[in-house]
Write a protein that binds this DNA or RNA. Sequence first.
DNA 1: CATTGACTCTCCCCTTAGGTCATGCTGTAT
DNA 2: ATACAGCATGACCTAAGGGGAGAGTCAATG
Lengths: 267, 267
Amino acid sequence: MLTVGEFSRICQVSIKTLHYYDRIGLLVPIKVDPSSGYRYYGQQQVERMLLIGRLKRYGFSLEDIRVLLDCKEEGVLRGRLCQQREKLKFKQREMELVISELSAHLQNFERTGDIMGYQKEYDIDVTNTPDMVVIASRQMMGVKEFGNYYSGLYERMAREHLTPDGLRGAVYYDQEFNHECSDIELIVGVRETEKADKTMKGRLCAKTIHKGPYSSLSDAYGALVAWIENHGYAWDGAPYELYVKTQFDSLAPEDWETEVYFPVRKK
Amino acid sequence: MLTVGEFSRICQVSIKTLHYYDRIGLLVPIKVDPSSGYRYYGQQQVERMLLIGRLKRYGFSLEDIRVLLDCKEEGVLRGRLCQQREKLKFKQREMELVISELSAHLQNFERTGDIMGYQKEYDIDVTNTPDMVVIASRQMMGVKEFGNYYSGLYERMAREHLTPDGLRGAVYYDQEFNHECSDIELIVGVRETEKADKTMKGRLCAKTIHKGPYSSLSDAYGALVAWIENHGYAWDGAPYELYVKTQFDSLAPEDWETEVYFPVRKK
DNA sequence: CATTGACTCTCCCCTTAGGTCATGCTGTAT
DNA sequence: ATACAGCATGACCTAAGGGGAGAGTCAATG
């Protein structure tokens, strides 16, 4: 039997951490002296503690770890580990992207001496957009669930024998932008007018093209809004994006292209 | 002038976030109606908000960002960006390591069906260690500051014309392990007995070799402690590590080797 | 003018994974 | 018996907001 101090030295974790793990039920001492409250740990708990440390490095939350360790099915365990590996790989790719973004920013900064320089390079103009015949799916959804809902639309297209015309986009109806859950309508352009959900009437829009990953899309929004204000227009309806070049064209995120439209009227 | 709602839609951040940024002084509306408390933002603040979002992606804390944006010197700004890029690259390398560790773990798990299998592969035995003639530097230090203190020792070796014998290690005196700040003594073996700080007398130790990055070193500690208990020995003194193969031998972290020693006596 | 509905305000509590005192009790060695 | 190391609990703190309650405000409509 080991006291907290001994146990903490062996496992290389702080006593506070052990107190905490006891409190949340992740690692409960085998014995607690009822009169003094002293905690005593057993040999075999060293193993558990080390495993906890490992899983923590793998990026699991303590809650996840508790569930994992209490779960006896080997398959589930293996599944969760695999899944976590994929998550880490994904995060790594994301980080790669951020680094390249930062590098580009730095270059731009050194060239122009303006820390916001990159943002002024949007070409913006006002056009009358053509009508778009689309099927649509409007829902409260998070930005990350786009994939799920899009696949729903494509499934439906297959079922109803619709022909895509290459148009893909999203309309943002929401008043306030919320990363996790917003009122968003995904649209896919189709040929069959009669079977489509609706025709989005052409209208006057301020438009620009955003090149690069979606993480910096809001730069385009900012540029557009500034332009609209400065050129005597007023914002008039839900903005939308069309995804012109994306990962589905097997392009790297730096080469993606997104058109951003803001419906406007002359002030 | 824009209301919070409008501003939040344009910049794609939540109203809550804007409230928060106002509160911490990171982005203060150009006007606040004194009677109603309503916030009004200006055009030019869109730019600032977007830049904040960017810097946040780059991994800066909001406090950092506030300082950065208020700092007018271009050089400082560029320096911080460069520095942050290096930090991100470092984190990326670390993540790479974790992924490879997880992959190895998974393989081991699938082979043995034992989630702790990897941990049982330490070869442990008891040896009488030889005397070690060392110069030493004992301090409260964090694990990450090893580099600083080691370089101090090497500097001193150069100054006093000491000859290293290839031994490098650290003794852990502390009762409780604390990542940030522990009582650790760094030691470097030298040839000149008379000029050395001390001779660490050889004595009975349980020993094992840990292969791989330092993040999983505590596995070795755990294995040793379990072994000591199970084989009728008692722990008797401050444990220490010797770094046998490290990054200074230009090896990848997977190939590093560390010897871990626990002084023991027969029970 | 009054009402409605959308918008906004502040205030308070909650999250993760513990860290940092402060104060008081316990165990053991001398 | 006493000193001192070790241990306990509890309160408060972190970063970056999210969620909700309850109340006030703005603009358009009847």
